[in-house]
Simulated assay, not measured.
Amino acid sequence: MTNHPSAPGEGGRPDAGLSAIMSERRRLTNLAYRLLGSLTEAEDVVQETYARWCALSPGQREAVDSPGAWLTTVAGRICLDLLGSARVRRERYVGEWIPEPLPDRTEWIGGRSGPDMGDPADRVTLDESVTMAFLVVLEAMTPAERVAFVLHDVFRYPFGDIAEIVGRSPAACRQLASSARRRLRASPPGERPADRRSGLVRAFRRAWEARDIDALVELLAPDVTATGDGGGLVTAALRPVEGAEQVARFFTERPPAEVTLVERTVNGHPGLIAQRDGVTVSVMAFEMSDDRIHHIWAVLNPEKLRAWTTG
């Protein structure tokens, strides 16, 4: 195992104590969430990674040059395996699959936090590499592309270390990351400033509440797409709705009469949540450019909304 220069545990030996190993948890969770698009699965990966570390003999741990690099390699391999099986699972998924949305740390309600895990909202850093638009593009990549790109371009790991995880040469990993970048460049243009995004989301909420189809059409790009994810557990459109007129009609025909729409931060960007009797039943993320909404993602699957609900 090679040393990684940016590993937080760098310089510490395995016998430095459990706290030095556990300090890697947040970084591993950030990595796994970006690779898998699911906080639930990311936390499972981190638990499995630590279980494998604990299964090592004292001699095996002593032989590890950098525990942080070892943990990252193991977590990356687990994620790579899960990404391969996820493609099969998602072929059987009812409707469209959308990554699990995350609230801002100040808005995190629910808890999957154990006694040693701290504030769950602290475990994922909300930056441009975790926006819904970014995660959706990652979903279109092959598992190897996704791992190579996220490790190199987001976490700044060298291709030599990534090669150990992906099981390919450093040159091949460089090509994987390059291919992933081309996919990103082919995605819609960059987001607007935060205040402009907030204004668009607020205008969308008001037009939806008023059932004003003309106002909605004005806010939507001509090629806008709205995608819902109910997972077969709640009612949601099984296929994306496309086109400004069609999307506007879709929303006006489903007025939020029984729910309260609240503006919230979703994966670091302005979004909306729908609440019924104080319980979040839908989280909506938006992609915008040129003062128009280009994509709407609505997550209704209750299994993906645990961070947004009490309990």
Score class of each variant (00 low, 15 high):
245 E>V: 10
108 W>A: 02
128 E>F: 05
52 R>G: 00
219 L>V: 02
302 P>V: 00
252 T>D: 07
219 L>W: 07
78 I>K: 06
199 G>A: 13
100 E>T: 03
166 V>S: 10
80 L>T: 12
123 R>D: 06
86 A>G: 09
26 R>W: 05
199 G>M: 09
130 V>I: 12
209 E>V: 12
245 E>F: 10
244 A>W: 09
99 P>I: 01
51 A>E: 12
138 L>S: 11
176 L>I: 03
54 C>L: 13
197 R>P: 01
139 E>H: 05
102 L>T: 02
35 L>M: 09
298 A>H: 06
224 V>Q: 04
280 T>F: 03
109 I>S: 06
229 D>G: 03
134 F>W: 13
68 G>I: 00
307 A>N: 14
40 T>N: 06
19 S>M: 11
309 T>N: 15
207 A>W: 06
87 R>K: 13
16 A>V: 04
194 A>I: 13
36 L>G: 03
230 G>C: 04
293 I>R: 00
261 L>R: 08
308 W>N: 01
279 V>E: 15
158 P>V: 01
256 P>R: 06
145 E>K: 05
295 H>C: 08
280 T>P: 09
88 V>K: 12
103 P>C: 02
173 C>V: 02
96 E>P: 00
253 E>T: 09
78 I>Q: 08
44 D>A: 13
38 S>R: 09
306 R>W: 14
183 R>L: 15
253 E>C: 07
310 T>E: 15
8 P>W: 07
200 L>S: 05
27 R>F: 05
73 T>P: 04
44 D>R: 15
28 L>I: 07
181 R>C: 00
104 D>S: 14
145 E>M: 09
287 E>A: 12
56 L>C: 03
300 L>P: 05
300 L>C: 14
